[in-house]
């Protein structure tokens, strides 16, 4: 039984004119001990999708899914109490801004012990002892002295270590890290990633790493899902994704990395991610894609198996017949000046 199964997960925010699709038909499967990276631009829905798994989508947002199970339990059918018993214990999450993610009015010792008292039913004394152990495990020097410190007295890197300690306090089976290093400086970034990976290895927990940093993904994850405008565009092993990207969007993302630059201008992807009101009828990437055809602009591709992975594209880059098919589709209907929007 897979640890986490997501099938056709959508998160919509209703508005007066048209609903905003933050997440649109995301499917993922995660086994125990897997390390999965989710990459995408800002606003591609990667964080919201994982908040939906945590049950943390705020009020007007509506979560729907054909299947959303954790260890075979249907998360959408659990009562609030059952869901809460899972959240923070078996599934934990850490966030982008460690300093604002900790409550400024409580000591870190209190905030850590709170989780232990809630889920492990420890008394205050036992929780305090365990808290010191945890702080030690995440590499905080002299942990006894830090228990009574407030978040504003620690650095961002230290605070992120506290957040990690809080997340692993109850030995979660799945840890979701939402851009855990974005707010930190470069030397600390590497330390935090190393810490996360060593904790993942030692405890055999599954790790989902959300990031927009391709370099981080390449170094840390075994599998990557590339998200765009709320949809998964491509999913495969990190090695093959970086070696030969199959989706034009993945290829464009990789080409836009500073490391991929030959010293001239950095490559960019023209245009912006579609918003709530200009969502294309067909392929969501079509308006920005170099290979778009009238067929792609009309007909939304399904996520389908392709070369040991999944892809959502009519013309994958590794397809030997793609040039002919693109040419044929462009002949079939004269290319429009601007792609039509729904």
């Amino acid at each position: 039984m897979p640890l986490l199964e997501i099938e056709n997960l959508s998160v919509t925010f209703p508005s007066q004119t048209s609903d905003l699709y933050a997440v649109d038909g995301v499917s993922l499967t995660l086994e125990r001990g897997d390390v999965l990276g989710i990459v995408g631009e800002s606003g591609s829905g990667k964080s919201v999708a994982m908040l939906a798994v945590m049950g943390l989508v705020a009020f007007p947002g509506q979560v729907t899914a054909d299947r959303l199970t954790f260890e075979g339990r249907d998360l959408l059918r659990l009562s609030d109490n059952e869901r809460r018993a899972l959240t923070g214990k078996d599934v934990a999450m850490i966030f982008q801004e460690p300093t604002t993610s900790l409550n400024p009015s409580f000591t870190i010792g209190y905030q850590l012990a709170e989780t232990l008292i809630l889920h492990e039913k420890m008394d205050r004394k036992a929780a305090r002892r365990r808290t010191i152990e945890l702080l030690d495990q995440v590499g905080i020097p002299a942990p006894e002295g830090r228990l009574d410190a407030y978040p504003h007295q620690l650095s961002g890197g230290m605070n992120q270590r506290v957040m990690i300690a809080m997340a692993i306090a109850c030995n979660p089976k799945l840890l979701i890290a939402d851009e855990p290093t974005t707010a930190l400086d470069v030397t600390i970034q590497a330390q935090i990633l190393d810490l996360l990976l060593s904790l993942q290895r030692d405890r055999g927990m599954a790790l989902i790493l959300i990031t927009h940093n391709m370099g981080v993904v390449a170094d840390t994850t075994a599998r990557v899902a590339v998200m765009y405008a709320g949809q998964i565009m491509e999913e495969r092993s990190t090695e093959s994704l970086f070696g030969s990207p199959q989706h034009p969007y993945t290829a464009a993302l990789l080409a836009a990395r500073p490391e991929a630059s030959d010293g001239g201008r950095l490559a960019t992807i023209p245009g912006v991610v579609p918003g709530a009101y200009d969502r294309p009828r067909g392929c969501l990437f079509a308006p920005r894609c170099a290979y778009a055809t009238p067929h792609a602009a009309e007909c939304r591709p399904e996520l389908r198996p392709w070369q040991n992975g999944l892809i959502r594209c009519h013309y994958p880059l590794g397809d030997t017949t793609r040039d002919e098919r693109i040419a044929a589709d462009r002949r079939a209907a004269p290319p429009a000046a601007a792609p039509e929007v729904a």
Binding site: A92, N103, M163
Partner: peptide, 20 residues
């Protein structure tokens, strides 16, 4: 953000509101 953290810990709503 820290309210999201409190909810991510699995704290019941009254504790998130009345304490955090």
């Amino acid at each position: 953000d820290y309210i999201r953290t409190a909810r991510a810990k699995g704290l019941p709503a009254y504790r998130v509101i009345a304490v955090h």
